[in-house]
Design a protein around this nucleic acid. Sequence first.
DNA 1: CAGTGGTCTAGACCACATG
DNA 2: ATGTGGTCTAGACCACTGT
Lengths: 244, 244
Amino acid sequence: MNRLSAHDERLPLYQRLRDDLLQRIASGEWAPGAAIPTEAELTQAYGLATGTVRKAIDMLVAEGVLVRAQGKGTFVRRPDFGNSLFRFFRFRSRAGSDVRPSARVLSRALRVPPADVRQALGMGDEAMGIYLSRLRLIDDQPVLAEDIWLPRERFEPLVEIKLKDFPDLLYPLYETSCRQLVASARERLTVESAGKAIADRLSLAPGAPVIAVQRLAFDFAGTPVEWRCTRGAGDGFQYEVDIR
Amino acid sequence: MNRLSAHDERLPLYQRLRDDLLQRIASGEWAPGAAIPTEAELTQAYGLATGTVRKAIDMLVAEGVLVRAQGKGTFVRRPDFGNSLFRFFRFRSRAGSDVRPSARVLSRALRVPPADVRQALGMGDEAMGIYLSRLRLIDDQPVLAEDIWLPRERFEPLVEIKLKDFPDLLYPLYETSCRQLVASARERLTVESAGKAIADRLSLAPGAPVIAVQRLAFDFAGTPVEWRCTRGAGDGFQYEVDIR
DNA sequence: CAGTGGTCTAGACCACATG
DNA sequence: ATGTGGTCTAGACCACTGT
């Protein structure tokens, strides 16, 4: 006898357990960084064999939702925004180590987003969005220009924050102020020639190669929560992938 | 009692079995597309439990080395060079479907490769390489320029082939002529402005944005076998990734 | 039908982390 | 010493494929 919701009897038990655990994580029952019940407790609670429970957890580990720690437990993964969601642009200090640029919010607006953004975020035709224009700098030199759209409904608290009080990293702010967790993202990379507006913002020669990274960020449930487009000089840009 | 080579007693059995299977695949005992022994046969031959054998196979499936087919067997994966190793540049015909450009080998040379290529390929300071300069075209318009380096030792048969007889896809040729299998690759992407040489080869304006993809291809054993740099117009270039 | 991989069980024992 | 995840066993039964 098990206690899995019967949302689809045909699915394997480990699959249904995985879905159930993911739903409980998405619902906030276990916060990022917190431990989920032990394998023994889960086998008890759901009335399954250890191998089945392990397989469900294996899947969530492979998906990057959970992390195991031998002898300690299994934990909801806290995405590290320092690197994993910041892959495309890398900057190095003069010393050679990686550097994270600081950020400055230039402006904020409340508007209905353009059609492509509304569609990407699954927003209705008249739903309000929050727009942020941001600059990222190293040693006070602008290196990246960002356009960000958020659905107002989920991010209302951001309307009140003073522009100068926005931190360098937005995702932790989303988490603490709006209880919105970014769990994954999809990025699309293209090359442009700098138009006048971008050339001005990034102190580039007009026509210089520019990399544009368009990112759609999702929560644990797979709902898109943020649309973002980041532009930077193509110069010095580098990206690496492994293919199998 | 099992029959695993004792190359490291401390490793888990499934790990050692995985290594052993991979070694047998790399040695050519089972060609790409061929079936490996059934799970039952492997449990017998190695004297292991089914779960342990399954875990070893699971790993190789996750690594893209094997594919399972329920009711049929488990097979050595034949990489499809049509898409998986050809991710960065996408071209669309006027009709809208994806198009694979044709290829023309412009020149071939036998030389000691530059130091960075030698190092990437793990070649000695005086080891000979085969250099190929290739152009890829759509409707007879050049769209990509490729520089390719191969260790001569492994690819001797290519020295004899007439330039006009090189096929569009090199990896199947490597497999049939030189028995060199490409199993995975690492690509590094950067942006350049077109210099005169590249601008000429690709019919671009000098200074136009160019994407350079530097690829290092590996066989099943993880040995680098090919170094390649592909350049194309930044215009219309697009790349998409999912991040977790 | 026989043979394959896919799912699942009910444990035992080991390695690691912590008090 | 206790509790955690990690490894491994020796099966049973199911679902799919091809004869």
